[in-house]
Design a protein around this nucleic acid. Sequence first.
RNA 1: GAUUCCGUAGCUCAGCUGGUAGAGCAUAACACUUUUAAUGUUGGGGUCCUGGGUUCGAAUCCCAGCGGGAUCACCA
Length: 573
Amino acid sequence: MSIALSEQEIIRRESLQQLRALGINPYPAEAFDVNAWAQDITDNFNNKPEAYQNVVIAGRIMTRRIMGSASFAELQDSTGRVQIYLKRDDICPGEDKTLYNTVFKKLLDIGDYIGVKGYVFLTQTGEISVHVRELIVLSKSLKPLPVVKREEDGTIHDGFTDPELRYRQRYVDLTVNPNYKQIFINRSKVISSMRNYFNAQGWMEVETPILQPVHGGAAARPFATHHNTLDMPLFLRIANELYLKRLIVAGFDGVYEFGKMFRNEGMDRTHNPEYTAMEIYVAYKDYIWMMAMVEECLETVAKAVHGIPVVQVGNNEINFAGPYEKLSMYDSILKYTGIDVSAMDEAGLRETCKELNIEVNPTMGKGKLIDEIFSAKVEHNLIQPTYITDYPIEMTPLAKKHRTKDGLVERFELFVNGKEIANAYSELNDPIDQRERLEEQLILAGRGDDEAMAMDDDFLRALEYGMPPTSGLGVGIDRLVMLMTNQSTIQEVLFFPQMRPEKKAKVASADDFINAGVPAEWVPVLNKMGFNTVEELKAGNPNKVFNDLGGMRKKLKLDITMPAKEVVMAWFE
RNA sequence: GAUUCCGUAGCUCAGCUGGUAGAGCAUAACACUUUUAAUGUUGGGGUCCUGGGUUCGAAUCCCAGCGGGAUCACCA
């Protein structure tokens, strides 16, 4: 980021002052009530022209084509763009043509918000346009927007495409690339349709703590923080599972929460340090019931976004209408590798990994080895929604042991387009079994596994009072939105993805320079020369600075007196 | 974390085997009463990401750093 204002920014600030000098408030306080929107006008004018003879619209000026005493501009509001037509003598009926000649032509810029009253008509070339009778300045823009040119056939010139700028300045991105707004509108539809579906079943939306003394419910590295008054460590939640289960203990039949989770781990195109999860717990149900619920729920969501349950994702057409294919973990490996691992011990699994060219290390136990084979050979094949069921017990400390299969738990994960998007259990409600499983996690933690689950004594106490049989489900909302909007990176479905902080150059205030003896009018010149702090100036060569000041004075055609050489020398003392 | 590519005007980008920076849009001035990537004429605008090095000379070559992208690894 440049420190000094660019030429265009200086000109806009001057325009701002000139507007004020003309008695025009560039930031008026009064409400400006509109009665029409761009999309409504362009969609419906031809059918009902009489309804658009007194329109009031507001938005940003996005393009201008000035032709003497008439001009065209495009106004962009929340719904789209509509062309406006301004004629000097129409907006300035009297002798005074300032509003057109000076305000519109000189002092307004691309990006400024204006309000307009007029009537809609068809130009000679057939474009629906608003003929302006009145124009009011609503907000002056001081930074030039990137200008993205679009041809009628959709060709884009000079697109604003740099991902860094788009993510850091999402407000600019969505202004000049309004097509991306649809992703976020669809994100909102995913969440609201899911919420409506849950509410219709009678389940209750709740909120549970984000600041937790014990980071339970998942295996991940947390963000740590500290509460001053209580003088205690706290963690930003990595999951809310254990709190929602406490509410089932408390006697609610169904509770759910949409919320941010925080994981202190790597970032890539499917991981952001804070992300949104939806977790739901329903009493007296099991994971088999949950599969049917998920099918109905996701079909509802897909229809809310697209009108049909089929969604185009990359090159695949994905059908969210159930029932989905169900494969046990072992059967899925058998299906895609031809190898039956169900009866293998750790040594056998290790040998199988070697044959399949899967890298393993000695710390991996049985569950982890099976997971490695699954990730390498099965996962990417699961394009249509598929439930993988019945996981090895080792990696799942919160799920109930399988009703018939030894060594497995009642769990499923839903895979779509080769990625996991949901995870569900018949929840473990045996408090003694639960305590033993968490103790095993403690042993792992003791061995240095910083992602092992922590002991949560209060959660165990709650279970000891008794939790009904319950099924629980977690859905990664960001990844679901990626599927529903056909996006391949999580950044595109987050308004403000996490970024490294921008480097900010240190800039001394003008007063600091003045205190050092620099006349006020010369401060901007020094800034222009690259001296942003008094220290930087003092580090410079006094004679060179003196000579350069003269050079800058000439170059910038400054009408200010040159300081005496002794004055300049004094800056360096 | 590894590999690799990128960083030049407000934006999108050129810039060759090293010789003191260019284009389009935006911007400024003038002209123009139905244009639409408006047009015509003229002008202004740069810490070539930062810091070192090589060289008579670096946007360009080398090293380090910062920021970003992609791929991979890590990650229920």
